Simulated scan of single mutants.
Amino acid sequence: MEEFVTAAVFSYPHEITILKHLLEEAGIRFVFRNETMASVAPMYSFALGGIRLMVHPNDLDTVKQILNNFENNSSLTIV
């Protein structure tokens, strides 16, 4: 995991629910750093710098494309 890089940062655990599925479906290796702490104590998320999506550098372009599609596709948003 030391070679993984931050692809995105989120504030709340509910923001990553659908994204996890999309990344798994694409076969991307990923980890969400600080996810557990943000789930247990949501206000700690800000103090820890948010929930960080960590991916391998080789997958970064694909992940950026998935994130872009996710943000622009209104049918996938969580309200």
Rank of each mutant, 00 (worst) to 15 (best):
E35W: 12
Y12K: 15
L67G: 08
L60W: 06
I66S: 08
R33C: 07
S75F: 12
I51L: 03
H14L: 12
E25F: 10
D61M: 09
P13N: 04
S45T: 02
D59A: 00
A8P: 13
L60A: 05
V40L: 13
R52E: 15
E24D: 10
P57W: 09
H14T: 09
H14W: 15
N69H: 11
F4N: 02
R52C: 05
M43G: 08
N34D: 10
L22W: 10
G49H: 09
Y12C: 07
N73A: 00
N58E: 11
F32Q: 00
I28Y: 03
L22K: 15
D61Q: 12
M1T: 09
L22Q: 06
V9P: 09
H14Q: 14
L60S: 06
K64A: 04
N58Y: 10
H21N: 07
L22E: 08
I51P: 05
I78Y: 15
F30Q: 02
V31T: 08
P42R: 06
M43F: 14
V9R: 07
S74A: 14
A7I: 07
N69Y: 13
V55P: 01
Y44E: 14
D61C: 04
H21S: 08
M54S: 05
N58A: 14
D59L: 02
I16Q: 04
G50L: 04
L67M: 08
F30G: 06
I66G: 02
V9C: 01
V9A: 03
Q65F: 12
L67C: 08
F46Y: 14
S45L: 04
E35M: 05
F46V: 03
R29H: 11
N72D: 12
V9G: 04
T6Y: 01
M43I: 09
I18L: 13
K64M: 02
L76V: 06
L23W: 11
M54K: 09
M37W: 13
V40R: 08
F4T: 04
F30L: 02
I51N: 06
Y12H: 14
I66C: 02
F30S: 00
E15H: 10
H56Q: 07
G27L: 03
M43S: 12
Y44L: 15
E2N: 11
Y12P: 00
Y44K: 12
A7S: 00
E71L: 13
T77Q: 15
Q65T: 13
Y44W: 15
T36K: 14
S74E: 12
F32H: 04
M54Y: 12
V31I: 11
P57H: 09
E35F: 10
L23S: 03
